[in-house]
C-alpha cells in the first residue's frame, strides 16, 4: 500500500488545524470519509478535499506534500504510525505525541513536540520557540521521546520539560531549558541568554561555552568515562550529526543549578 498522501492544493490564507489527520484518527476510514473530514481554517470549516488532493491508502504512513507553515497541529497526539511533512510545519507539530514518528523536511513553528510523551520528531530545518515545552498554563512539558533538530531552535527550548531528549545541531535561543524538571537537552551550536534559567533537574549538554547566570555553581572539569559514552552510544543509530563518533566527547566542565530553584540541574560543557 502506498502512503496516504495529502498534497496541498494551494497555501491557505488562514491557519489550518490538522489535528484530525493523525494516523490513529483516520485509521479505518475510506478515502471518501477522509475527504469529508472538516478542518478548522481560520473561522471557517473546510473539507479535506478542498485543501488537499488525496492519494494512497496506507493510513499508518501519512505524507503532507507541499506543506507550509500554516498547517498547525500535524501529528496531534500521534499514537503510532509515521508522518512525513514535505515542507514546513506550522505550530504545535507533534503536540502530545504518544508514539510513532514525524519527520519534517522543512522547519516547524512554535510549540513543536510540546507535551510529547514518546516517539520521535525529526525536524530538518529550524524549530520555533517552546520546542518540547508545555502549553501556556500547563506545568509539564515534554515527558518522553526524542526530538532532533538539524537547524536551530528558538527561545525557551524545553520549558518545563519532564523527560526525554532534545538534540539540536544548530543554535538555540534564550532561556534554553528554562524551568526544566528533568530530561536531556543537547546543543551543538550556541546558546542564547541564560540557559538553564530556573531549572530544577535535568541536563543541558553544550558543545559551546555559554554565558551563565550567577546561580549556577562551578563544579569544575572532569572526565565522564561512563555516562557520556553511554549517552553518545545511544545516539549512534540516529540520522544526525549527534550519531557521528567525532561528535562524542567525555571531558566536560560541570555547572550545577539553578540554585535559585531546586538546584539539581546541570550544564555540562565540552571542555
Amino acid at each position: 500500500m502506498n502512503a496516504l498522501t495529502f498534497t496541498l492544493r494551494r497555501p491557505p490564507q488562514q491557519r489550518v488545524d490538522l489535528a484530525l489527520l493523525s494516523c490513529q484518527r483516520i485509521a479505518g476510514l475510506s478515502t471518501a470519509e477522509i475527504n469529508a473530514i472538516e478542518l478548522q481554517c481560520g473561522k471557517r470549516r473546510l473539507r479535506v478535499d478542498e485543501l488537499f488532493e488525496l492519494s494512497g491508502s496506507n493510513n499508518r504512513e501519512i505524507v503532507f506534500r507541499n506543506s507550509c507553515d500554516k498547517l498547525d497541529r500535524i501529528g496531534h497526539e500521534l499514537d503510532g504510525g509515521e508522518i512525513t511533512v514535505e515542507g514546513d510545519a506550522g505550530a504545535y507539530c507533534g503536540l502530545g505525541m504518544k508514539s510513532g514518528s514525524i519527520r519534517v523536511r522543512g522547519s516547524a513553528g512554535i510549540f513543536a513536540a510540546c507535551e510529547m510523551h514518546d516517539g520521535m520528531l525529526q525536524i530538518e530545518g529550524a524549530a520555533g520557540d517552546f520546542l518540547g515545552g508545555a502549553l501556556p498554563g500547563n506545568k509539564r512539558g515534554m515527558q518522553g521521546g526524542m526530538v532532533i533538530v538539524k537547524g536551530s531552535a528558538g527561545d525557551r527550548l524545553g520549558d518545563q520539560m519532564r523527560r526525554g531528549m532534545v538534540l539540536v545541531e544548530g543554535n538555540v535561543g534564550d532561556y534554553c531549558g528554562s524551568r526544566m524538571i528533568a530530561g536531556t537537552i543537547a546543543v551543538m551550536g550556541t546558546t542564547g541568554y541564560s540557559p538553564g534559567y530556573s531549572m530544577n533537574r535535568g541536563t543541558l549538554l553544550l558543545w559551546r561555552t555559554p554565558k551563565l547566570i550567577a546561580t549556577f555553581a562551578d563544579c569544575g572539569t572532569h572526565t565522564s568515562s561512563s555516562f557520556l559514552p553511554l549517552l553518545f552510544r545511544s545516539w549512534r543509530s540516529l540520522n544526525s550529526r549527534f550519531a557521528e563518533p567525532k561528535a562524542a566527547f567525555s571531558r566536560i566542565h560541570r555547572y550545577q543549578g539553578d540554585l535559585s530553584a531546586l538546584g539539581k540541574g546541570e550544564i555540562l560543557v565540552k571542555s
Binding site: R163, H222, T223, S224, F227
Partner: peptide, 21 residues
C-alpha cells in the same frame, strides 16, 4: 541523577573517583 537512555533508567551517583553509573 536519574537518566532514561534508550528506555532504560540509569543512576549517576557522584563518588570520589567521579561518577558511578
Amino acid at each position: 541523577i536519574s537518566k532514561v537512555i534508550g528506555g532504560k533508567r540509569y543512576w549517576r551517583i557522584p563518588v570520589m573517583h567521579g561518577e558511578f553509573v
